[in-house]
């Protein structure tokens, strides 16, 4: 079947099997590999994308269901210059191996849009659908908070 998904602002059409998962559509049909796969039980959030602005796990949605919708991936964060989240993850050592990072940043983005200066607990709650094995989370929380402050400061 033919589906058209607007990815990072560009409409992308492909002919796919209905069973194609959104994450595979993004990674293999479109060749955008910033969205990762870390589990098979919808537990880890490495595949997080924004669906019409809301973070979801793209491993647990068929690309067919995204037909006509907007999807944002990590590749869409940078807009000429790095997004404040990208800057703050760097500055606060919010990543180590980088595998969970795209998902964490996208969840952070959605969170900051509704809550520009979240508390430590609020960030932890928001990212509790995303696993990280390296950082122990402290610096991810700091990175998201710092990005919020940076966005507010502008």
């Amino acid at each position: 079947m033919k589906v058209t998904v607007t990815i990072n602002g560009t409409a992308q059409t492909a002919d796919i099997e209905p069973r194609k998962l959104l994450v595979d559509f993004i990674r293999t049909e479109l060749g955008m590999t910033g969205t990762h796969i870390g589990c098979d039980t919808t537990s880890c959030g490495a595949c997080t994308v924004l669906l019409d602005g809301t973070p979801i796990k793209s491993c647990t949605m068929f690309a067919a269901s995204a037909d006509g919708h907007e999807v944002q991936t990590v590749e869409g964060l940078k807009n000429g210059e790095l997004h404040p989240l990208q800057v703050s993850f760097k500055q606060n050592h919010g990543l180590q191996c980088g595998f969970c990072t795209p998902g964490m940043m996208l969840v952070g983005k959605a969170l900051l849009e509704s809550n520009p200066s979240p508390t430590d607990d609020e960030v932890r709650w928001a990212i509790s659908g995303n696993l990280c094995r390296c950082t122990g989370y402290t610096n991810i929380v700091k990175s998201i908070q710092a990005a919020g402050a940076a966005i507010e400061g502008n």
Partner: peptide, 16 residues
Amino acid sequence: DDRFVQGAGNYVDDIV
């Protein structure tokens, strides 16, 4: 970090 925060890391599964 520059490549990781832009989703430009290159992991084994990314290789085609």
